[in-house]
Design a protein around this nucleic acid. Sequence first.
RNA 1: GCCGGCGUAGCUCAACCGGCAGAGCAGCUGACUUGUAAUCAGCAGGUUUGGGGUUCGAGUCCCCACGCCGGCUCCA
Length: 633
Amino acid sequence: MRMNSHDVGLNPGELYEVSDIIKKLGANFVGIVTNGLLYLPGERVALGDTVEGITADEALDILRHSTAHLMAHAVKSLIRDAKLGIGPAIENGFYYDIYTKEKITEDTLQLVEGKMRELAEARLPVQRQVLSKDAAIELFSSLGETFKLELIDDIEGDEVSVYRQGDFVDLCRGPHVSNTAHIKHFKLLSISGAYWRGDENREQLTRIYGTAFWTDEDLREYLHNLEEAEKRDHRKIGRQLDLFSINEDIGPGLILWHPNGAIIRKEIEDYWRNVHLEKGYQFVYSPHVARTRLWEISGHLGFYKENMYPPMELENQTYLVKPMNCPFHVQIYKAKTRSYRELPLRFAELGTVYRFERSGVLHGLLRVRGFTQDDAHVFCTREQVEDEVTDIMELALDMYRLFGFENLKIELSVRDPMNKDKYVGEDDVWELAEKALENALKRAGKEYVVAEGEAKFYGPAIDIKVRDAIGRYWQGPTIQVDFNLPRRFGMKYTGKDGREHEPVMIHRALLGSLERFFALLIEQYSGWFPLWIAPEQIRIIPITEEQLGYAQEVADKLREFRIRMDDDTGSKLGYRIRQAQMDKVPYVLVIGAREVQEGLVAVRHGVKGDLGKMGVEELAKMLREEIRQRAHL
RNA sequence: GCCGGCGUAGCUCAACCGGCAGAGCAGCUGACUUGUAAUCAGCAGGUUUGGGGUUCGAGUCCCCACGCCGGCUCCA
């Protein structure tokens, strides 16, 4: 929080040692900002009229923001016609969007990084300057910085601030480090295109990503973590463990589930079905295609066409492959007259849908073109909506907790108020739906953010996002309140009053899609699946041929588990243990002469290592309990 | 779709300035009969993603297509 210097007993204009100022501010600050610049303990500073204590996180953001400036400075000194877009600090670093006529490639990054080091070593003081908008417009016009002019236009008030270092000047709110010499430990990481102001109809700038830290240690640790995260990548583990594949001749974004992956999917589906039965859902099945007419009524042809595959024509009728399951469930509802006594009616289906996704967005199992949603539609009265939404949210969170997911972000996805023609339905109905979701969130007491423009075309939603191995968030659970489709389809139920009423429809998916969920699960466990879903639960390793008979007896007793007999007795034990480890088998039973003699098995846990010897019954009991609890390894 | 990068054996990767496509692992065969993360030997495996071009000669240079990777836009 920014304070008046006087108020904390300090005199503006006077020279202070930074740590003395921090003492006055009395908190866990690592530095201070005054005159728009960051100062750290050990520095002497002429205090400005205001002073602000800075936490470690804030200081790191400032450093990264300043590193972005340094990078822009370097690019501009190397490429004369470069024009700057924006260059903020982000979660793990920073980026700067820069427009150049000649293309920037990864080779350019080396040059830029070199130039940055040069400019940092030049120990350039950084200065903040406040300009009138007119002066700023003149300044940036003379520099040809057309994007900055657009930004100035959008800034409220009459004044803007700029930061200078050497011959470089940038429009910026700040704050920044006080000297480029503070910027020592940084690295430029990648390069990509980014549309100016996120609008694909505008210019595409080059976005350069990088990161910066206060110490070399922190930088190395971060880079090391990046490498570690790559090892958890579901595409890599998927191949190693033979879980799934994507085949070019079949098509991009279309998934082959191999036996190992299919077992995991089957276990998850079984669990999912049981939970849904307990929670009062009924299962339905629906076809993969439907006549054009259905999609006209639902509004998909108007609002979702971009994502649908082109129609196929047969016997003078056109059919479309389904991108969603909802219209089918609606028709099941409409197959007979419904009474209020039946509501809420909950139809669930593991429904496979196909959506045309633009080629550049496909990503392993996380973004595909054909996928199976764990879909359900709840039809209920207006009064029941909040309870239903609350229950669904609880169920979703429980399910994710079971699989060990901690990093969830809850969003309330509402319409983009500037773009209402992207959605079907009347304002009052949308407001009702948004209100219902908001109330449910408040009742659940969960923290959430409002995401404008993220609503589906037929209604607002609670969207829950899950983190992948490298920190990207993907949508998992979604709960959507929809007053629109019931109206379009003319859905009805007979109320207590004997009259017809319109039900409300809630669309929901918990896991999201099995493909995406599987990807997140692989990365969550880095392939070490809990016993209950592990494709191979036990591997038996008889040391020599001598023990094959006894090993087979053990295997027979453990037939309830997914088990593999490793009878490659020609290889050394160490080698075979290593194979089991790489296959990420939860339990390995080593059987040698001693085990046969004692009538025991030597148990090795994939993560915990050697557990010693035990009897087969004792082991089976332990494993059954582990499966019952669906415990993590 | 857009920007940048990449595509060599099932996997991971070599191949100098354009000059005979190569290794480890996996697979197969055989020897070894083994005590908690790699025993040894042999064999087999390739239209260098596909198509066109330049060249005496292309994995290497150019063009097109396809696919993949990191982003942007878009979305479970």
